[in-house]
């Protein structure tokens, strides 16, 4: 995994460039699939969507099907890439762990101010559960969609039973997919989660935030305790305080969401101890707002 601590910048690399490409390929093609999926129903004309500038094609079933297909190519290829790439590299951070259901209830309580947040790994337990749910929804959408596509081209007289299944699985999972997307958006609006948002654009999150909230993950990334030589902090070039742009992935644009992050200098205190993984949850850390 490419996750690592960028001490000089006070950041943690959370998502590799490949993950960012995967995410946005799936997100953009997925949203296009939702839109063109809706246009497969005979509603665009009735609901004046055909009169919206830029959407005049929405009533053309052949055209919108072609867009639905084009988005599917990206979506399916990206999803299968994701599965095989991460499975072969043994990436497990997103897979549900034992106790996730119980823990995620506690996390939701903590969002409501009714409980202490437990220490997190790379992902929150609800992220792992949501991932598993999304995998099932997407797998069903892909399989049923492939059956429907095959029928359109090669087998219009495919068994009625199979087609009814494929059609209704596709239709019902479409609804779940849209609901899951809204839940996904709701999750990133929740205040304690917001420091993660930048990661899906730049790949990085703030080290102080990660130390505080994802100590179990940081513990895996921190050098082993038996390293007295200060390899890291000898980088004195910390004066350009606002300079947060990760050098590695130059291709990625800086997030437009900078208002989230107070333009604070890279956290002083953190930098100085690259030492053992302290569980610094309770550390009175001035840098991050609650």
């Amino acid at each position: 995994m490419s996750d690592r601590i960028l001490y000089d910048k006070g950041l943690v690399k959370r998502h590799s460039t490949i993950v960012l490409i995967e995410h946005w390929a799936i997100a953009i093609s997925g949203l296009l699939l939702v839109l063109t999926g809706i246009f497969q129903l005979p509603i665009a004309q009735r609901y004046y969507i055909t009169e919206v500038p830029g959407l005049t094609w929405s009533g053309d079933f052949i055209f919108s099907l072609n867009i639905h297909y084009a988005a599917s190519v990206v979506f399916i290829a990206a999803c299968l890439f994701h599965v095989f790439y991460h499975a072969l590299l043994g990436h497990k951070a997103m897979l549900p762990k034992k106790g996730d259901i119980r823990q995620s209830i506690q996390v939701i309580k903590s969002f409501l101010g009714k409980a202490e947040e437990p220490p997190f790994h790379k992902y929150l337990p609800e992220q792992r559960l949501a991932y598993a749910g999304m995998v099932m929804i997407i797998a069903g959408l892909i399989i049923s969609g492939l059956v429907k596509t095959y029928k359109n081209i090669f087998a219009p007289d495919l068994s009625l039973g199979i087609l009814l299944w494929a059609t209704w699985v596709h239709n019902l999972l479409f609804i779940l997919f849209v609901l899951a997307f809204f839940a996904h958006m709701a999750a990133i609006v929740i205040k304690p989660n917001r420091p993660m948002v930048r990661s899906i654009f730049t790949g990085n999150i703030r080290l102080d935030y990660a130390r505080h909230r994802h100590p179990l993950w940081i513990a895996e990334l921190e050098p082993p305790p038996a390293l007295p030589e200060q390899t890291q902090p000898e980088t004195p070039s910390r004066e350009p305080a606002g300079e947060e742009e990760p050098l590695q992935d130059v291709s990625l644009p800086e997030p437009p969401d900078t208002e989230e992050e107070p333009a604070e200098p890279a956290p002083e205190s953190e930098e100085e101890h690259p030492e053992p993984p302290v569980k610094n949850i309770g550390e009175p850390d001035t840098n991050h707002k609650p």
Binding site: I18, I62, A77, F81, H86, N152
Partner: peptide, 24 residues
């Protein structure tokens, strides 16, 4: 007019699989 793109859809799983294995 949709047959070509539809055929690409049917091949997309293979493309994703091959790319995923190669990248890994």
């Amino acid at each position: 007019k949709t047959d070509a793109m539809g055929t690409a859809v049917l091949l997309a799983p293979i493309a994703g699989l091959v790319a995923g294995v190669a990248a890994a």
